[in-house]
Amino acid sequence: MTVPVIFNEALRAQRRDRAAGNFAAHDFLYAAMADAMLERLDDVTRAFESALVIGCPDRRLVDALAARGCSVTAADPGARFAQACGGDILREDALPYPPESFDLILCCGTLDTINDLPGALIALRRALRPDGLLLLTIIGAGSLARLKAALLAADGERPAQRIHPQIDVRALGDLLSRAGFTMPVADSDNLDVRYGSIFGLMADLRGMGAAQCLASPPPPLTRAGLSLAAAHFAQAADPDGRTRERFVVLHGSGWAPDPDQPRPARRGSATVSLAEALRPSRATET
């Protein structure tokens, strides 16, 4: 089966490399994802010995797992992020590790820009030992709605795809099950960020390595188009002049099959966690 080419892999890596120099100034989304992963790991009663961390723009996950006694391998699609953590450069759907290399894999914020997401999940499952755990976070459907609307308004009658395609929480649960994970769980969390202008949001996306990396890039906005987008974004502002943008963070988990596990959940049965759904959204200002 031919995998659709949605993302430019070289440009994806280039975006991450360019973000490496000043990532700490734009790390709020990665920090929220990483903290949520560690919180979920706290709920797991078993110990892990060998971990793989994919998505390491800083060392917070690597160091946190090492402090728990894990032997940690770091990896990233971007060379500069990988090198800064002493890790490997990789593609998630073509892992360079033998089967059953790890008993824990954390994949933080990268799988939303991989062409073969089902293949990547299968590769991650194969890299796990029996009864090994995968935790992942990605940006999901519903994210960047204000930015999307502003860009559509700027394009007028000839809209271009300028925001990456996004999957929803139910699709993530189904993909985990199809990839062979047992006890798959998918849920979501909202992170609201308030911006003084569209340009602050765009700067954050560039600064975190999340600028568009589509294989068929849209034509650049003209100066007039950019002004229209900025005006449309500003129209949605709160009374204090700041516009609220939402990042929908999807969390997924699954276990590599093992004969001693409970029977796996029926495919597609992963649902949004009620506790997570009732938890207040976090908000920041930029």
Rank of each mutant, 00 (worst) to 15 (best):
A123Y: 05
L128F: 06
I105L: 12
D88W: 09
I105A: 13
R125V: 04
R80A: 14
G86T: 10
L124N: 04
C85D: 08
P96A: 11
Q83Y: 00
I114Q: 12
Q83D: 13
A120W: 01
Y97M: 12
R129H: 03
R126E: 15
D116R: 02
P96K: 08
N115G: 05
L111N: 02
L117Q: 09
L90T: 11
C108M: 02
D88N: 03
E92Q: 13
D103H: 06
Q83P: 00
L90C: 08
G78R: 10
G119M: 01
G78Q: 13
C108S: 14
A120R: 02
R80V: 11
P118E: 01
N115E: 05
G87A: 11
P98L: 13
Y97E: 12
C85L: 05
L121R: 07
F102A: 10
R80D: 13
G109I: 03
Q83F: 04
L104H: 03
F102R: 07
I114A: 14
L128E: 07
D103G: 06
F81M: 15
G109A: 08
G78D: 12
D116W: 02
D116M: 02
D103I: 02
A94H: 14
L128G: 07
S101G: 15
L111Q: 01
G109L: 03
T110Y: 01
L95V: 13
D103R: 06
R125W: 03
G86M: 09
T113F: 01
R91M: 14
Y97L: 10
